[in-house]
Nucleic acid binder design. Structure first.
Length: 225
DNA sequence: GCGACAG
DNA sequence: ATCTTGTCGC
């Protein structure tokens, strides 16, 4: 059973990130591509009713078939503040992950990991509190910059922070389609994170894990009373 | 000081 | 994130 404390304010949230960031493990390669179980997580909001629904969908890495699904519904406990997304999403996401019958070998998050103002995005936070290998695959470049990668699937370019540090990679998952933004979460190398992302995106821009989790959390939100 | 800014 | 049908294209 894992959980995330809800900070009283933004300053406290940043302090929590600064403390937890020291626990991120970056010297492991991560699971082999195409083997084991991979979970995708995502959340949907209903600000009117103050609800948040999270979904965790587990795929067989070899076939990309769904093998298990879990959802959780809760109340919005923190506002959306760029850089503090984890405090808004993780409490419910962790509840959904806890409902799975078996721990996955990798968790794919909808957002960033190391590519973050304090080097501790959503994917790092999830990895540290669960102990599971994790990566972040975001749909937007946030505050980072990159040179346009080649036009073919698999082409990539470094994702760079304002200070010049490479914090991830802009990765083209489909020919001629806008890239996704991959960064390391916990216990996975950037090369492996990109290889995993490509393997999970054989047909669409967004990884199958995230696609399944996205549709499931929306359904869970609709069916929430 | 004023924006910009993952979801 | 969310408001949102049909439609253009492979």
């Amino acid at each position: 059973m894992t959980s995330v404390k809800t900070p009283a304010d933004e300053a406290e949230a940043r302090a929590v990130q600064d403390e937890l960031r020291t626990r991120v493990v970056l010297d492991e390669a991560g699971p082999a591509v195409g083997r084991g179980l991979i979970a995708g997580v995502d959340v949907a909001y209903d600000d009117e009713r103050d609800l948040v629904a999270a979904a965790a969908v587990v795929l067989d890495a070899a076939t990309l078939e769904v093998v298990e699904e879990a959802t959780a519904v809760g109340h919005v406990s923190f506002p959306y503040v760029p850089g503090l997304l984890a405090f808004r999403e993780l409490p419910t996401v962790l509840a959904a992950l806890d409902a799975l019958s078996a721990a996955p070998g990798l968790v794919v998050c909808d957002g960033y990991g190391l590519a973050h103002p304090r080097g501790f995005g959503l994917a790092c936070h999830l990895g540290v509190v669960t102990g599971l290998p994790s990566i972040g695959v975001a749909k937007n470049p946030f505050t980072f910059t990159y040179e346009e990668p080649g036009a073919r699937r698999g082409d990539a370019a470094p994702l760079v922070a304002a200070d010049g540090a490479v914090v991830g990679r802009a990765l083209r998952t489909q020919d001629g389609i806008k890239p996704v933004y991959v960064s390391v979460g916990h216990r996975v190398s950037l090369d492996n994170a990109c290889a995993q992302t490509l393997a999970l995106s054989p047909r669409f821009r967004i990884p199958e894990t995230t696609r399944h989790a996205d549709s499931l959390c929306r359904r869970a939100l609709r069916e929430a009373s």
